[in-house]
Design a protein around this nucleic acid. Structure first.
Lengths: 206, 206
DNA sequence: TTGAATACTGTCCATTTGTACAGTATAATG
DNA sequence: CATTATACTGTACAAATGGACAGTATTCAA
């Protein structure tokens, strides 16, 4: 994991201290006040960089919308990483802005390394051909681009679906791994293809 | 301490759950949304009463300004549970005594509750018909008995295999969920059937 | 019956808070 | 030297949020 700068580390440890002491992370203004920063954007910049390095997750538009993903002291007992379980993925918005987070799930961080992980409950049997069943929890790494053959979370008609992503002479095909479902083909000229992330694992409770 | 009403207790436990899952308490609107209340004032009323009974403290004017003073039961453990990943399952010995543990894996303890959990790497395609593939990590709860229909880790000829356990007029059938594999039938009189545990989940890394 | 406590709906407003935009400064790097 | 990443200042705005006011309904006990 990429290392934090001194300033960034100070900010992160203040966030962690706030959570310990008050049960909730600080606002941007509270951080600025604590360090004597006169600019909010300075704090935002720090938060963005800390997020990009995978230590925290920013939730767009929410008050105190920062979740600490990885503490400073590392291992700290659990070898687990907490990732959000989202109910659905609305189009357009980045994953970090998803409102309807139901819960969070602990993953083994040796198995699934961050940042940008989230989980999604699989609906339907469209991927049953490769052993992904209705009700499974899909583990997704957030990314916009994908390679042909990847299983991705695609936003089609504003709805999030798990499909195999295939590039074929310019067109893009979203293929369900189930004979009962047909391909969704996006012609080469038609631009709008949104990918929310790539499947990197699943969890099933039987 | 004065007791909470049913509605108040529901609200408080939601607040605690939010703090556990997201690291910050919910806003009034998030509480209202979660319970389907159409009035914010209703939630505020609840919060005021919960505060007056001493369970929480409200910080005026601050977003997510609620501190939980006293939890409902506060198990407060880490949300991860570590369970061994065993390479093979020798007959006779209890799982806790297994020598050849390769590694340990962190599970979400909300999803998979102990005790007696261990994990096993699935070898072969014998259960691919129900979405359990070669290389998957099977999550097993240690138990000797099983009900007909359970997926179990059975010790057959000293080898651990994942099979569906079926009781049929006295006989026991271990069935692979794959047309290419045939049943293993243990006649009624032949006693020696050892079950190491029951499948309660899987994890796959793609 | 009366009254108090609880459980709600609905609307409006002021504050808190996140976010965007427009900059400056410094250090490291090629 | 130009470029990039980081570390800041300062202003403005829209959304999120808490808080107040005005009600209604139900339960429960006096």
């Amino acid at each position: 994991m990429e290392r934090l700068t001194v300033s960034q580390e100070r900010v992160l440890s203040f966030i962690i201290a706030c959570q310990k002491n008050h049960g909730s992370p600080p606002t941007i203004r509270e951080i600025a006040l604590h360090f004597g920063y006169r600019s909010l954007n300075n704090v935002r910049q720090h938060l963005r960089l800390i997020e990009r390095k995978g230590y925290i997750r920013l939730i767009q538009g929410k008050a105190r919308g920062v979740e600490v993903v990885v503490g400073l002291d590392m291992d700290s007992g659990g070898r687990g990483i907490q990732v959000p379980l989202v109910g659905s993925v609305p189009a357009g918005k980045p994953i970090t802005a998803i409102e309807n987070r139901e819960d969070s799930i602990t993953l083994d961080q040796n198995l699934f390394k961050g940042p940008g992980l989230f989980t999604l409950r699989v609906q339907g049997e469209s991927m049953s051909g490769i052993g992904i069943l209705d009700g499974d929890i899909a583990i997704i790494r957030q990314q916009q681009a994908a390679e042909s053959g990847d299983i991705v979370v695609a936003l089609i008609d504003g709805e999030a679906t798990l499909k195999r992503y295939i590039q074929q002479n310019g067109s893009i095909i979203f293929r369900a791994e189930n004979p009962g479902f047909s391909d969704i083909t996006i012609p080469a000229d038609q631009g709008e293809v949104t990918i929310a992330g790539k499947l990197i694992g699943i969890i099933r409770k039987v």
